[in-house]
């Protein structure tokens, strides 16, 4: 775990906090902090592979040559 001194506070509404607390509990997270950090990390991360069109075409060419597409 990162130490507390490396954390910052973010303010959210009480209603949302209660909803998230419940979701964290149901999801098996040890506390709401762990849950919120996980969700935000997921949102902040890139969703797809960074690939140029040219690289993607090369990948597709290989997949076609191997019979995958």
């Amino acid at each position: 775990m990162s130490s507390l001194s490396e954390k910052v506070a973010v303010y959210i509404s009480r209603d949302l906090y209660e909803k998230l607390r419940k979701l964290a509990e149901e999801g098996g997270f040890s506390d709401i902090n762990e849950f919120v950090e996980f969700v935000l990390r997921e949102v902040a991360s890139a969703s797809e592979v960074d690939m140029s069109k040219e690289d993607e075409e090369k990948v597709k060419e290989r997949l076609r040559a191997l019979g995958y597409i």
Binding site: E48, V49, M51, D55, E56, V59, K60, R62, L63, L66, Y68, I69
Partner: peptide, 17 residues
């Protein structure tokens, strides 16, 4: 090699399908 794929390839493949 003809049945080895890397993650960037499977990700494109899954999307294509």
């Amino acid at each position: 090699e003809n049945v080895r794929l890397w993650p960037k390839e499977t990700r494109v493949l899954f999307r294509e399908r």
